[in-house]
Protein backbone atom coordinates (compact mmCIF):
# COMPACT_ATOMS: atom_id res chain seq x y z
CA UNK A 1 0.00 0.00 0.00
CA UNK A 2 1.32 3.44 -0.87
CA UNK A 3 0.05 6.94 -0.27
CA UNK A 4 -1.19 7.34 -3.84
CA UNK A 5 -3.29 4.20 -3.70
CA UNK A 6 -4.62 4.99 -0.23
CA UNK A 7 -5.48 8.52 -1.34
CA UNK A 8 -7.14 7.04 -4.42
CA UNK A 9 -9.25 4.64 -2.36
CA UNK A 10 -10.24 7.42 0.05
CA UNK A 11 -11.16 9.72 -2.88
CA UNK A 12 -13.26 6.93 -4.34
CA UNK A 13 -14.95 6.42 -0.98
CA UNK A 14 -15.58 10.18 -0.69
CA UNK A 15 -17.21 10.23 -4.12
CA UNK A 16 -19.64 7.51 -3.00
CA UNK A 17 -20.33 9.30 0.30
CA UNK A 18 -21.01 12.57 -1.56
CA UNK A 19 -23.46 10.76 -3.83
CA UNK A 20 -25.19 9.14 -0.86
CA UNK A 21 -25.34 12.54 0.84
CA UNK A 22 -26.85 14.15 -2.25
CA UNK A 23 -29.56 11.50 -2.56
CA UNK A 24 -30.25 11.37 1.18
CA UNK A 25 -30.15 15.14 1.81
CA UNK A 26 -32.14 16.21 -1.23
CA UNK A 27 -34.27 13.03 -1.48
CA UNK A 28 -33.58 13.45 -5.17
CA UNK A 29 -31.41 11.78 -7.78
CA UNK A 30 -31.83 14.45 -10.46
CA UNK A 31 -28.68 14.81 -12.52
CA UNK A 32 -27.50 11.33 -11.56
CA UNK A 33 -27.28 8.67 -14.25
CA UNK A 34 -28.79 5.40 -13.00
CA UNK A 35 -27.06 3.65 -15.90
CA UNK A 36 -23.65 4.70 -14.61
CA UNK A 37 -24.59 3.40 -11.17
CA UNK A 38 -25.68 0.09 -12.67
CA UNK A 39 -22.44 -0.16 -14.64
CA UNK A 40 -20.43 0.50 -11.49
CA UNK A 41 -22.39 -2.15 -9.60
CA UNK A 42 -21.47 -4.59 -12.38
CA UNK A 43 -17.82 -3.45 -12.22
CA UNK A 44 -17.59 -4.18 -8.50
CA UNK A 45 -19.48 -7.49 -8.69
CA UNK A 46 -17.24 -8.68 -11.54
CA UNK A 47 -14.01 -7.45 -9.96
CA UNK A 48 -14.61 -8.62 -6.40
CA UNK A 49 -15.76 -12.18 -7.13
CA UNK A 50 -12.66 -13.25 -5.22
CA UNK A 51 -13.86 -11.54 -2.06
CA UNK A 52 -14.69 -14.90 -0.47
CA UNK A 53 -11.75 -16.88 -1.82
CA UNK A 54 -8.81 -14.48 -1.68
CA UNK A 55 -8.20 -12.80 1.66
CA UNK A 56 -5.72 -9.97 1.11
CA UNK A 57 -6.29 -7.73 4.13
CA UNK A 58 -9.07 -6.56 6.41
CA UNK A 59 -8.92 -3.16 4.70
CA UNK A 60 -9.25 -4.75 1.25
CA UNK A 61 -12.21 -6.89 2.25
CA UNK A 62 -14.03 -4.09 4.06
CA UNK A 63 -13.58 -1.66 1.16
CA UNK A 64 -14.87 -4.25 -1.32
CA UNK A 65 -17.98 -4.81 0.80
CA UNK A 66 -18.51 -1.05 1.18
CA UNK A 67 -18.19 -0.43 -2.58
CA UNK A 68 -20.51 -3.27 -3.54
CA UNK A 69 -23.11 -2.52 -0.85
CA UNK A 70 -23.19 1.26 -1.41
CA UNK A 71 -23.47 1.03 -5.19
CA UNK A 72 -26.22 -1.60 -5.00
CA UNK A 73 -28.01 0.55 -2.43
CA UNK A 74 -27.86 3.56 -4.77
CA UNK A 75 -29.20 1.54 -7.71
CA UNK A 76 -31.97 0.13 -5.50
CA UNK A 77 -32.78 3.61 -4.23
CA UNK A 78 -32.97 5.07 -7.74
CA UNK A 79 -35.20 2.20 -8.87
CA UNK A 80 -37.25 1.40 -5.82
CA UNK A 81 -37.47 4.36 -3.44
CA UNK A 82 -40.88 5.87 -4.14
CA UNK A 83 -39.72 9.47 -3.52
CA UNK A 84 -36.21 9.37 -5.01
CA UNK A 85 -37.11 7.48 -8.18
CA UNK A 86 -39.60 10.19 -9.17
CA UNK A 87 -36.70 12.62 -9.63
CA UNK A 88 -34.78 10.30 -11.94
CA UNK A 89 -34.14 11.98 -15.32
CA UNK A 90 -35.41 8.98 -17.25
CA UNK A 91 -35.80 10.86 -20.54
CA UNK A 92 -32.26 12.31 -20.29
CA UNK A 93 -30.45 9.16 -19.15
CA UNK A 94 -30.71 7.43 -22.52
CA UNK A 95 -27.12 6.33 -23.16
CA UNK A 96 -27.19 2.79 -24.61
CA UNK A 97 -25.01 1.34 -21.86
CA UNK A 98 -25.63 -2.24 -22.96
CA UNK A 99 -23.18 -1.56 -25.80
CA UNK A 100 -20.55 -0.63 -23.20
CA UNK A 101 -21.12 -3.93 -21.41
CA UNK A 102 -20.95 -5.94 -24.64
CA UNK A 103 -17.82 -4.13 -25.88
CA UNK A 104 -16.05 -4.59 -22.54
CA UNK A 105 -16.94 -8.28 -22.49
CA UNK A 106 -15.66 -8.83 -26.04
CA UNK A 107 -12.46 -6.93 -25.29
CA UNK A 108 -11.95 -8.93 -22.07
CA UNK A 109 -12.29 -12.16 -24.05
CA UNK A 110 -9.62 -10.91 -26.47
CA UNK A 111 -7.25 -9.09 -24.11
CA UNK A 112 -6.62 -10.49 -20.63
CA UNK A 113 -3.76 -11.66 -18.47
CA UNK A 114 -4.80 -15.33 -18.36
CA UNK A 115 -7.68 -17.12 -20.04
CA UNK A 116 -9.39 -18.04 -16.77
CA UNK A 117 -12.90 -17.14 -15.62
CA UNK A 118 -11.66 -14.87 -12.85
CA UNK A 119 -9.04 -13.07 -14.96
CA UNK A 120 -11.52 -12.44 -17.78
CA UNK A 121 -14.07 -11.10 -15.27
CA UNK A 122 -11.34 -8.90 -13.81
CA UNK A 123 -10.34 -7.53 -17.24
CA UNK A 124 -14.04 -7.02 -18.06
CA UNK A 125 -14.46 -4.98 -14.85
CA UNK A 126 -11.38 -2.87 -15.69
CA UNK A 127 -12.58 -2.06 -19.23
CA UNK A 128 -16.16 -1.44 -18.09
CA UNK A 129 -15.06 0.91 -15.34
CA UNK A 130 -13.13 2.96 -17.90
CA UNK A 131 -16.33 3.77 -19.81
CA UNK A 132 -18.88 3.54 -16.99
CA UNK A 133 -18.89 7.32 -16.50
CA UNK A 134 -20.05 8.03 -20.09
CA UNK A 135 -23.80 7.93 -19.36
CA UNK A 136 -23.22 10.29 -16.42
CA UNK A 137 -21.16 12.76 -18.48
CA UNK A 138 -23.76 12.74 -21.26
CA UNK A 139 -26.50 13.33 -18.69
CA UNK A 140 -24.57 16.29 -17.23
CA UNK A 141 -24.26 17.86 -20.67
CA UNK A 142 -27.98 17.44 -21.28
CA UNK A 143 -29.20 18.56 -17.89
CA UNK A 144 -27.67 22.05 -18.13
CA UNK A 145 -26.51 23.39 -14.80
CA UNK A 146 -25.18 20.81 -12.37
CA UNK A 147 -25.83 20.94 -8.63
CA UNK A 148 -22.75 21.16 -6.41
CA UNK A 149 -22.94 17.69 -4.88
CA UNK A 150 -23.33 16.03 -8.27
CA UNK A 151 -20.34 17.99 -9.59
CA UNK A 152 -18.25 17.01 -6.57
CA UNK A 153 -19.32 13.39 -6.96
CA UNK A 154 -18.07 13.24 -10.56
CA UNK A 155 -14.92 15.19 -9.69
CA UNK A 156 -13.86 12.78 -6.91
CA UNK A 157 -14.80 9.78 -9.03
CA UNK A 158 -12.51 11.02 -11.79
CA UNK A 159 -9.72 12.02 -9.41
CA UNK A 160 -9.49 8.59 -7.75
CA UNK A 161 -8.33 6.81 -10.92
CA UNK A 162 -5.86 9.60 -11.57
CA UNK A 163 -4.33 8.90 -8.15
CA UNK A 164 -4.24 5.20 -9.05
CA UNK A 165 -2.13 6.07 -12.11
CA UNK A 166 0.41 7.70 -9.75
CA UNK A 167 0.21 4.53 -7.65
CA UNK A 168 1.07 2.36 -10.69
CA UNK A 169 3.99 4.63 -11.59
CA UNK A 170 5.24 4.42 -8.01
CA UNK A 171 4.90 0.63 -7.93
CA UNK A 172 6.56 0.32 -11.33
CA UNK A 173 9.67 1.99 -9.93
CA UNK A 174 9.61 0.33 -6.52
CA UNK A 175 8.54 -3.25 -7.26
CA UNK A 176 10.73 -5.41 -9.53
CA UNK A 177 8.07 -7.45 -11.30
CA UNK A 178 5.30 -4.92 -11.35
CA UNK A 179 3.59 -4.80 -14.69
CA UNK A 180 -0.09 -4.18 -15.18
CA UNK A 181 -0.48 -2.52 -18.49
CA UNK A 182 -4.17 -3.58 -18.77
CA UNK A 183 -5.16 -1.52 -15.72
CA UNK A 184 -2.75 1.28 -16.65
CA UNK A 185 -3.94 1.80 -20.22
CA UNK A 186 -7.55 1.46 -19.11
CA UNK A 187 -6.94 3.85 -16.20
CA UNK A 188 -5.44 6.42 -18.56
CA UNK A 189 -8.43 6.19 -20.89
CA UNK A 190 -10.79 6.44 -17.90
CA UNK A 191 -9.09 9.56 -16.54
CA UNK A 192 -8.84 11.12 -20.01
CA UNK A 193 -12.63 10.85 -20.39
CA UNK A 194 -12.94 13.27 -17.46
CA UNK A 195 -10.57 15.79 -19.06
CA UNK A 196 -13.21 18.20 -20.31
CA UNK A 197 -15.26 17.81 -17.13
CA UNK A 198 -12.18 18.67 -15.06
CA UNK A 199 -11.62 21.72 -17.28
CA UNK A 200 -15.13 23.10 -16.80
CA UNK A 201 -15.09 22.12 -13.13
CA UNK A 202 -11.86 24.12 -12.68
CA UNK A 203 -13.37 27.10 -14.56
CA UNK A 204 -16.47 27.07 -12.38
CA UNK A 205 -14.28 26.95 -9.29
CA UNK A 206 -11.98 29.74 -10.55
CA UNK A 207 -14.80 32.04 -11.61
CA UNK A 208 -16.87 30.97 -8.61
CA UNK A 209 -19.64 30.25 -11.10
CA UNK A 210 -22.19 27.46 -11.42
CA UNK A 211 -20.74 24.36 -13.11
CA UNK A 212 -22.13 24.17 -16.63
CA UNK A 213 -21.04 21.74 -19.34
CA UNK A 214 -21.53 22.88 -22.95
CA UNK A 215 -24.18 20.80 -24.72
Amino acid sequence: MNIFRFAGDMTHLISILVLLLKIYATKSCSGISRKTQELYALVFLARYVDIFTEFISVYNTIMKIVFIASTLAIVWCMRGHRVVRRSYDKELDTFRHYFLIAASLVLALLVHEKFTFQEILWAFSIYLEAVAILPQLVLLQRSGNVDNLTGQYVFFLGAYRGLYILNWIYRYFTEPHFSRWIACVSGLVQTALYADFFYYYFLSWKNNAKLKLPA
Binding site: R5, D9, H12, D50, E54, I56, S57, N60, M63, K64, F67, E113, W122, Y164, N167, E175, F178, R180, A183
Partner: peptide
Protein backbone atom coordinates in the same frame (compact mmCIF):
# COMPACT_ATOMS: atom_id res chain seq x y z
CA UNK B 1 3.07 -19.73 -6.94
CA UNK B 2 2.03 -16.63 -5.02
CA UNK B 3 -0.96 -14.96 -6.58
CA UNK B 4 0.09 -11.95 -8.65
CA UNK B 5 0.27 -9.14 -6.11
CA UNK B 6 -1.62 -6.99 -8.57
CA UNK B 7 -5.02 -8.21 -7.43
CA UNK B 8 -4.33 -6.61 -4.08
CA UNK B 9 -5.75 -3.38 -5.48
CA UNK B 10 -9.39 -2.36 -5.35
Amino acid sequence: KKKTSFKDEL
